[in-house]
Simulated scan of single mutants.
Amino acid sequence: MTKLTLGTHPFLLGFEQLERLVERTAKASGDGYPPYNIEQTSERSYRITLAVAGFAEADLSITVENNQLVVRGRQSDSGDERVFLHRGIAARQFQRSFVLADGVEVGEAVIENGLLHIDLSRQPADSVVQTIRIKRSGK
C-alpha cells in the first residue's frame, strides 16, 4: 500500500511545496520564547502579539523574507557593572518566525507596555474564470 502525503495527492496538483512549508513552519516554532498570541481581529485581519518586556524599540527588528515574517530581538549591553543577586528576567536574544500565506500583508507594528503588536491583513483573492478551448487532434 502506497502512503499518500498531502503534497503528492493526485487531486492537489502543484502543491509539492506545501510539505516543505509545513516542515519549515515546524522548525521555525523554536523554544517558545518569547511567548506570543495570534488573534483574528476581523474577517480579513490578524494581530500577532509578542511579550517583549525589557526590549526597547531599537532592540527589535521585523522583516518579511520569502513569505515568512521574522521578528528578532537582541538587547544591547548597557555597559554598566551591575551585580545581580538574582536574575529572573530573561535578557536573551530571540528569533520568532511566522509563515504567511500568499496575499497576507504586514501592516504596522506597535510596542506598548512590553507587548509588540504586529497587524496583518489578508487581501481578498481575485476570482478568475478561464475557459480552455478544446482542439481536435490532427490525426
Rank of each mutant, 00 (worst) to 15 (best):
M1V: 13
M1P: 08
K3S: 14
T5G: 09
T8H: 10
H9L: 12
H9Q: 10
P10T: 02
L12S: 13
L12V: 03
L12N: 09
L13Y: 08
L13M: 11
G14T: 05
G14W: 10
G14V: 06
F15V: 11
F15R: 10
E16W: 09
L18S: 09
L18Y: 14
R20Y: 11
L21T: 13
V22D: 05
E23Y: 09
R24M: 10
R24N: 12
R24D: 15
A26H: 08
K27N: 10
A28W: 02
S29G: 01
S29H: 03
G30H: 01
D31H: 05
G32E: 01
Y33E: 08
P34W: 02
P34R: 05
Y36G: 01
E39L: 12
E39K: 15
S42C: 09
E43D: 14
E43I: 04
R44D: 07
R44C: 01
R47G: 02
I48D: 00
G54D: 01
G54Y: 04
E57Y: 13
E57D: 09
A58N: 13
D59F: 05
L60I: 12
L60K: 08
S61A: 15
T63P: 00
E65Y: 04
E65D: 12
N66Y: 04
N67W: 04
L69S: 03
L69A: 05
R72V: 01
G73A: 06
G73L: 04
R74W: 03
Q75S: 10
D77C: 07
D77K: 11
S78E: 14
G79R: 11
G79H: 10
D80K: 10
D80L: 13
R82G: 08
V83T: 11
R87I: 06
R87H: 11
R87Q: 15
R87L: 11
R87A: 12
G88W: 03
I89K: 12
I89Q: 15
A90D: 02
A90K: 02
A90G: 02
A91E: 14
A91V: 08
A91K: 15
R92H: 07
Q93C: 07
V99F: 06
V99I: 10
L100R: 03
L100E: 08
L100T: 06
A101H: 04
D102N: 11
G103F: 02
G103H: 03
V104A: 00
E105G: 00
V106P: 05
V106D: 03
G107L: 06
G107R: 06
E108L: 11
A109F: 00
V110T: 08
I111K: 12
G114D: 09
L115V: 01
L116G: 05
L116W: 06
L116H: 04
H117M: 04
I118R: 01
I118Q: 01
D119L: 08
L120M: 00
L120R: 00
S121C: 10
R122L: 07
R122P: 00
P124L: 05
A125N: 09
D126F: 11
V129A: 13
T131R: 15
T131H: 14
I132R: 14
R133A: 10
I134S: 13
K135V: 08
K135G: 08
K135C: 03
S137E: 12
S137N: 10
S137Q: 13
K139Y: 15
K139R: 14
